[in-house]
Write a protein that binds this DNA or RNA. Structure first.
Lengths: 248, 248
DNA sequence: CATGATTGTTTAAGACATAAACAGTTTAGA
DNA sequence: TCTAAACTGTTTATGTCTTAAACAATCATG
């Protein structure tokens, strides 16, 4: 990482005037005619990186480590992938797999959007590093990412909202899932307990400075498990969207 | 970075059984009696790092670069700060400054929460690196972060919601601001235009795969500027919260 | 005034991404 | 069939980063 944006010439012929990284994401690359048979593919490399990240976290995904998985040198990967940035993009794309099929989920926009959010949430749960991976660089490019977006927008079509509003609602839902995943990632069980211990210790010393917070903790607002955060947030947002629809 | 979690012994005496990093965040450190006068403080270091990050991005904040700002060697900083992780935490704390005073903002919970969100948004706008800085590691520890949280929770007290619900609403609002900042950070003006160009190019080739998306773009859903994303999202969420309140 | 805590420096280790040069492999075209 | 181009994978090397370790200089307190 830490590489400045560099033009990086595109030498492909068949992949028509697309930046190399994007051609890769869309699988639009020409396979070579001459030379030794490639022993790898970008997709296999990305897959290995994904299982590695799933098991040991994104930090341990280095070119060296991934290459070792195939018994080749780190530099060998550069024959398939322009750089680490692009590898991570491929990882994201790999994990997004096929978008959810919402046709089975009733026909209401609300049920469908809710289902969409839950599927997306499941992906974040299965691959916690996804958050960091998409946080670092540009969003939304690969076909799988676009497909997810497409299904959400399709679910919103029957609402009667304007296209601009539908887009905003999509952003809202996607953002909610994402930010919740963020909050989860920060607080695993152990860490949460430790955080609670330290925070109450500190609050004891400064309870006058944080009255509302102190009270909230005393009332168990942070330890109650009766509310599922994802559903709570979704219900509020969707209720709010319903209000907007009714008003039109 | 890329440092495994290491216990790191605490040698302070006055800072009572707090991990060094946290004592630092709360300003609970004893100043030394003997030895040369320190030429720096953790706060001044953090401040320099903040102005550096504001000007040139978080990537350029390296121990070397920050130290150079004071004309000292990189290692000198380690006399004041245990490591880079803690420096970043101090940066966050520095930028959160004093929490907003919402007492001037009418008395309704809704107006106050909205104002809170706008202030938080302003912070993200002023310091785009804040996102990456808080994304990497644990959230919420320093007194300033807690103070922001406190004001939001205080604004929610008159709603009649349960403590658990208020907490969830807080998370929802904070998450919305954050995820919006995320989306903004990814898409500056130029990048946005380039993204639109490439995406429509790709959609032209695969429009059958993404019907809803294609239509949305054709309808200008992505280029309409009439809706302010922050206010749109807030209005939906707050409407939804209102529904919940009315139902109780 | 000397002792020991504390500051800042130099040196160096180890991880990382990736550039450059090179040796071996395969196939298209002569 | 042979040769040259295209391609793969390797080794070597560079620059960047965090941070450990050893050391020299400094200053209040006994």
């Amino acid at each position: 990482m830490a590489r400045a944006a560099k033009p990086r010439e595109n030498k492909d012929k068949k992949a028509r005037d697309l930046p190399t990284g994007i051609a890769l994401l869309w699988g639009e690359q020409d396979q070579p005619a001459r030379g030794p048979k490639p022993s790898l593919t970008p997709q296999r490399i990305a897959q290995a990186a994904v299982t590695l990240a799933d098991a040991e976290g994104l930090e341990t995904v280095s070119m060296n480590r991934v290459a070792a998985e195939f018994g080749v040198s780190a530099m060998a990967l550069y024959r398939y992938v322009p750089g680490k940035t692009e590898l991570v993009e491929l990882m994201v794309e790999a994990v997004l797999a096929e978008p959810p099929d919402l046709s089975a989920v009733g026909s209401g926009w609300r049920a469908r959007l809710s289902a969409w959010a839950h599927r997306q949430w499941a992906v974040y749960q299965a691959h916690p590093w996804l958050l960091a991976a998409t946080a670092m660089r540009r969003q939304i490019m690969g076909p799988h990412q676009l497909a997810w977006m497409d299904t959400a927008l399709a679910a919103l079509e029957p609402t009667g909202l304007t296209p601009g509003q539908r887009h905003q609602v999509f952003l809202l839902i996607a953002g909610q899932v994402r930010s919740l995943a963020q909050q989860r990632a920060d607080f695993d069980e152990d860490h949460n307990r430790e955080w609670g211990r330290l925070t109450s210790e500190l609050l004891n010393r400064h309870s006058d400075r944080f009255p509302a917070l102190t009270k909230a903790i005393a009332d168990g607002a942070f330890t109650s498990t009766e509310l599922d955060p994802l559903d709570f947030g979704l219900d509020r947002i969707l209720d709010g969207v319903q209000v907007l629809i009714d008003r039109a």
